[in-house]
Design a protein around this nucleic acid. Structure first.
Lengths: 343, 343
DNA sequence: GCATGCGGGACAAAAAATGTCCATCCTATA
DNA sequence: TATAGGATGGACATTTTTTGTCCCGCATGC
């Protein structure tokens, strides 16, 4: 941590909670503006009058702009917000936490975003922004990128800025369709991500839980065969980590299977595989997509997960592969470290 | 200025006055401890209850120690204080001020210490500490150092730490005796500074305002002759700058001479010379000591002056020589810049 | 044009900061 | 050893600041 920051923390400790509060207010305005005091107060769970005082100060500092339609962040405020992210990262000791997570999970890379998605959904956007940055730094010309679906990866795609000068990239969905809203499906994400990268994409229209027969016959389709071949040779995989119980429900597994899954200790799901906290595969969705063996061979794997409730799922996933870029939030990270210590 | 500091100033502006207040409390404790609440409150000019709150916080942070004899700084607190000096230096924009002073006076080096001695005498000690550091960095083996008298240079000597590994240094008074307390006379300062540098010293016992005859006969004394020879070949001169009016009074000049001096525009005094704001010599004390020509040839000149009331004196002195290390306080610096702008 | 949500004003209530006094305990000194 | 001075810590009234709450007029979108 910067020595200046240490100094300030020692001499003016009052500033820490103040800074954090102000940061959260600014984040809300940044992502939701223009927005009114009342909504802001509700979202942040603090009094309206407090929000009002904060806004007034932020306005005086030129960080936000108050209009009749609500409060919005100024360009200057946005640049300050970006710097504040790093500062909060330092203040909350994220670097220390990152080291602990890496040790607890025995993985190569961990990035911890301040906050907890379970308590403040906007933290997801900061995490997504960070994951998008990782992706941006990893992707080179002629690379093929696999993506999964889900709200988290959707957000990563949304936070990705338009890239220029990148040649011949290809984005493909990593596995067959998941239910849920169209927008968050891997097909949609792949298409839009490809657009942002200035590359091409392919779609994969296959339902979940198909029979082996159907799977085999589908595999003979040239289009699908092509895509599966690409999947075997992915350069980058960008995927989310889900909780087993939630994913089972979302995919509408039969009640019986669902129960059995959880009984067998499944805690997490990623690209179609259900696994327990130690990384043992409990079940794989019968669909076309990336295989565990493929996953372990991909050069770059970027996993994103937010919320303390996903700690066990992340723990399990980390056992599948050690070379990984794991982007999680503070809530998940602290829970992971706790889990590691209690064992 | 550090970008982190800028950020903090924008997002948590409340911390600035808070930090400054706390810094001053810590300074008082640092230099005057152990000391009680009441004396502290009186010295700082703030309420006793406030001091109490501050002390309590500082204690919680482990910066000070409360004992029955009063409050004193802890070793940790002292190290924090040292770092705080730099931080306050940044916050108050001293670097900017230093640049302005250098430009206004057209000199090579300026160091500005936060605060104003005229309002808070403790600032003098910070300034002295800084000057001591400059001296420490300048002095090498076999060097001869000339010093003047006065409270300021006395303080510099006091802030100097015991040096080791320095060989064959010599400290001599730069001019004949000034009245005033024994402790602050150049002879005394030279002796004690020599002790701290692990070197030797010589004394010069000559009164002020002697006749030319007396001066000449004194100069034949081998001891004095030796010293004067050394003075012509000084490596470093460390001296204070005084106000002409105050110095004339201190040296008990006849009322008539005193008035004439001021009428002729004398504003400052240094090593026996009275000069006006443009650096024209109005009068030199008839005594044995360093000459103006000597002064202009010395490799390193370190001048120390504190208090906004000395602005004109500093201004005048700066005209005598451009290559100089000038250590002043914020009060003097701002006044100097003001003078420069109004011209 | 109408409803919704916005900012800003106003004011009471609550909380925090500050001023003030006093009891008690050390410590240096006569 | 007795005593005076200065120190802390507790207590409490008072002032100032912060916070909760309501209402009003106005812009905006439907």
């Amino acid at each position: 941590m910067s020595s200046l920051l240490k100094l300030a923390k020692v001499v003016v400790p009052e500033m820490v909670p103040l800074l954090e509060k102000r940061f959260e207010v600014l984040r809300s305005i940044h992502y939701q503006g223009p927005i009114g005091r009342r909504s802001l107060a509700t979202n942040l769970g603090i009094g309206e009058r407090i929000v009002r005082a904060e806004i007034q100060l932020l306005q005086q500092q030129g960080l936000v702009d108050i209009q009749s339609s609500g409060v919005m962040i100024t360009p200057y405020g946005a640049s300050i917000y970006q710097q504040l992210e790093h500062m909060i990262h330092d203040i909350r000791g994220m670097q220390n936490l990152e080291a602990k997570v890496k040790e607890a999970l025995d993985i190569s890379h961990a990035i911890v975003i301040p906050g907890d998605c379970d308590q403040d959904p906007l933290v997801l956007r900061d995490a997504a922004k960070s994951a998008a940055l990782q992706l941006k730094q990893s992707v080179k010309d002629h690379m093929t990128i696999g993506v999964t679906g889900g709200a988290t990866i959707y957000q990563v795609m949304m936070e990705m800025s338009q890239q220029k000068g990148l040649k011949n990239t290809k984005v493909i969905p990593a596995r067959g369709g998941i239910g849920g809203s169209l927008e968050m499906q891997s097909n949609h994400i792949a298409a839009r991500l490809a657009e942002k990268l200035g590359g091409s994409y392919r779609l994969l229209h296959v339902p979940d839980n198909i029979s082996s027969n159907a799977k085999e016959s589908l595999m003979k389709e040239p289009e699908i065969l092509n895509l599966v071949t690409d999947l075997h040779a992915l350069d980058i995989l960008l995927f989310g980590i889900g909780r087993a119980d939630q994913m089972a429900r979302r995919r509408k597994l039969p009640e019986k299977e669902h129960e059995e899954l959880l009984n067998q200790g499944a805690v997490g799901e990623a690209f179609g595989y259900y696994f327990d906290v130690r990384g043992r595969i409990i079940k794989d969705s019968n669909t076309i997509g990336i295989s565990l063996q493929d996953y372990q061979r991909i050069p770059v794997a970027i996993a994103v997960a937010c919320g303390s409730s996903k700690a066990k799922a992340i723990h399990g996933l980390a056992s599948l592969r050690k070379e990984i870029i794991l982007v999680i939030d503070e809530g998940a990270a602290r829970e992971i470290v706790n889990l590691g210590e209690s064992n």
